[in-house]
Design a protein around this nucleic acid. Sequence first.
DNA 1: GTGAAAGCGCTAACAC
DNA 2: GTGTTAGCGCTTTCAC
Lengths: 318, 318
Amino acid sequence: MPTIKDVARIANCSISTVSYALNNDRRIPEKTANRIKKIADDLGYLPSAAARNLKKQNTNTVLVAISDFGGPVYHELLDGIHHKLGKNKYTMIVSTGFSTENLLKEKTVDGAIISDINITNKTLKQVSKTFRPIIILDRSLDDENIFDMTIDNHNAMYRLTNDVLSKGYRKIAFVHGVKKTFDNESRFAGFNHALNEHGLSVYQEFVGNFTKPSGQKIAQEILNQNEQPDMIVCANDEMALGIMETLQINGKNIPGDYGVSGFDDIELSRYFKPSLTSVRINRFSWGERIADTLIHLMKSESTSAQKAHGELIIRESY
Amino acid sequence: MPTIKDVARIANCSISTVSYALNNDRRIPEKTANRIKKIADDLGYLPSAAARNLKKQNTNTVLVAISDFGGPVYHELLDGIHHKLGKNKYTMIVSTGFSTENLLKEKTVDGAIISDINITNKTLKQVSKTFRPIIILDRSLDDENIFDMTIDNHNAMYRLTNDVLSKGYRKIAFVHGVKKTFDNESRFAGFNHALNEHGLSVYQEFVGNFTKPSGQKIAQEILNQNEQPDMIVCANDEMALGIMETLQINGKNIPGDYGVSGFDDIELSRYFKPSLTSVRINRFSWGERIADTLIHLMKSESTSAQKAHGELIIRESY
DNA sequence: GTGAAAGCGCTAACAC
DNA sequence: GTGTTAGCGCTTTCAC
């Protein structure tokens, strides 16, 4: 493993000259710089990030922490973040679970974007104390160096619910995802907001966990009860899809017997029969804005962290 | 930002004692160790990975490089890798594109798992020269410190094609993904192998790029030509799905007018009507085996890198 | 334009 | 059981 020392020895100069040359410092004439670069290249020299990070006290790396790689919603978001980060010479790494905790605590990154509810507020606050900015997408949390760029769930669900109401539905059930999560509570709040304005309140409530199987289970509950809703508003698409599937297997028509709506607009929702009405967030540009904000924050420049807005995608499911 | 020095000062001992205590060295009595740990905790001390990495010349981190976050096939694989890595106290980071190049070259990781055809062989060889093992999943490449744990595409496609033949199909078209990629060529080879054994050869060939839109375009080509195949074997599910969709839109029946098959068994394939016959790889246990092998390699222990085998999932599409 | 040297925050060999 | 110290591979200040 050649180090900067080896390059210096062979180039017959000091390590500082090598360092300057490799980092394109203006003081080194182009000719010398090229000679040194050539030698470094021939030697297979690659600088050590550990040494540079230690000296410079930064890593030029941004962490994106997600709750799992399976969710169908991260793709565009990550692409958007990566795209903007690349333009600004940052490296992006993605992690989950215990790996995220390690990375955050060991100062391996200059900034982080968190969309993983399993990371505790305590960890977040502890880490942000070291003056590395953190943008959160999965909760609201007020703390210095922690910035909220969540989706404006409330407003989007409010608009969706108003659309549902305009279609004449009145016995409206709500299917929760994991309770107390930001996404669930804010979506439910937007739903209630619209209902209340019409002098209505939720007809029935069910609690799932944002997954398809939980939707399937809830559909069974619905089928087994006496009072039947005419509309089922779900906190996300995956549960809505599970509900529709089970309802259909049991001979029900959608939207004939029940209207159903989702949230997130995952790919499957477009292909399911009937296609699912949902809320779409342009996650690529959301990601770009997130990265942009984080870059400003890491440079201690002022910016404002803004929420993402959803677009109603009306399809055939109610 | 407190460092080990600050902890030592407050604990009124040397930095080596702090280091030993924090790393649970047996020499430090539990009582002292606990006192020091408490002080470190109160101070909000977090060790610096950069310093430790520089000193120890390793990072305890494994990189998984994927070509994009959108592919529906990575989820289980990453979970399997992460699971096994966690059991062995390694941190996993995931990256794409330019970020992967940076990470690999700067020795930020002790080992890497590559499933990104955009990373050049040159980079791989250069990096593996530093004696960090690399496992490749997206190509065959013979080099020291580079280990092949690809899917045994040839064998799986051979078995699928034999099943197709046993159903009586004889005018069999093959839809390529990106040419010259390992996945495409090895699948095509397995396909040909089976055909040749029956004294047949491919009826027609089309070239897509592993995406759904490319499948849709190919379906149009098929519809516009005179000679019609009775079976369309595709190099992956996404293209197969695109083909089926376009064929159906144009009034064709599957499997009545054409049989279709895929490869990968992505989630959508189960829900599409007709459901798609495909090849499933248990990616979780594949991931576990990959991580296990890499761990051995990083410890310079001997192991054998083995390929992954696919399971035929027979459904309704031919 | 180039070099010497300090020092980033740790680990671990060695001394006591 | 605890402390002293060298040194990991860089960047950067300061001299010349």
